[in-house]
Computed example of a mutant assay.
Amino acid sequence: MTIPGEQVGIVLVSHSDALARETAALVRQIAGPHVRVAPAGGTDDGGCGTSADKIAAAIEEVDQGIGVLMIPDLGSSVLTARLFERPPTVVVADVPFVEGAISAAVLAATGAPLPSVLDAADDARTYRKL
């Protein structure tokens, strides 16, 4: 059981700072402004790539002690995110970036536990658009 207000945190790990920030903004618009989501995109000098320091800071920002779900975009962002994976409290999700983030955040906002939030993100893989 979670204490009211506690949520699983979500970290969006992307090669692009803009993509991570805008996806986080979209997540907040759909899941609510109080959802615990943080972008970790781009390199420390503003380039394309991933930053371990940004990921660490994002985890710290969203972690309320009940779990953190990291959603990487592709390639090396997965490898960098996995450096911070500490099952069962901090996990990397192999899910579509935008759809997975929104699905995870909508459920996380309810106070659901990490395994349920991960399952919701994973379900996004099967969403059809047509």
Rank of each mutant, 00 (worst) to 15 (best):
M70W: 05
V92W: 13
D44Y: 05
V95M: 00
A20F: 06
L79W: 12
V27E: 02
L130H: 13
L79D: 11
P115K: 13
D45T: 15
L83R: 15
L118M: 05
R82M: 14
D17M: 09
G32S: 03
Y127C: 00
T50D: 02
S16C: 14
S76G: 09
V35D: 00
A124T: 02
R36Q: 14
L19K: 05
A101P: 00
T43D: 02
G9K: 09
P87W: 03
L130E: 09
A101C: 00
T110A: 02
R82F: 12
I59H: 09
I59G: 07
C48F: 15
F97D: 06
R86S: 14
G42W: 08
A120R: 14
I59T: 01
M1H: 10
S77Q: 10
P33A: 14
K129S: 10
G47M: 03
L130F: 13
V27N: 10
V13K: 15
L130G: 15
A58I: 04
A56H: 09
S76F: 14
V78Q: 14
G65E: 12
G100S: 03
A20E: 08
P113K: 02
D63G: 09
L19F: 08
I3Y: 13
I30G: 12
A105C: 10
A18T: 11
T126Y: 11
G41W: 01
P4T: 00
R36G: 04
A25C: 02
I10D: 02
F84N: 01
G67H: 03
D17T: 03
G65N: 11
L114Y: 13
L83D: 15
H15Q: 11
P96I: 09
G9V: 01
H34W: 03
D73C: 10
A24G: 00
A20L: 03
A56G: 07
H15A: 04
R125K: 12
G75C: 06
S51M: 00
A121H: 10
M70D: 00
V98I: 08
G5I: 05
A109K: 07
L12P: 12
P115I: 00
M1Q: 10
E61C: 00
L69Y: 02
V13S: 07
L130Y: 11
S76V: 07
A38Q: 04
K54S: 00
L83E: 12
L118E: 15
V106W: 14
R82L: 12
A108L: 02
D45K: 15
P96V: 02
G49R: 11
C48N: 14
D122N: 06
G46S: 14
G100W: 05
R21C: 03
R128C: 11
A58R: 04
V37T: 07
G100H: 05
G111K: 10
P39A: 03
L114T: 06
D119P: 04
D44P: 06
S76E: 08
V62H: 11
I71T: 02
Y127F: 13
A24I: 03
L83A: 13
L114N: 10
L74T: 01
L69R: 01
E60K: 09
S51P: 02
R36H: 12
L107I: 03
P88T: 12
T80G: 14
G65R: 07
A20N: 10
C48S: 10
T2W: 02
A120S: 12
G67Y: 01
T89M: 15
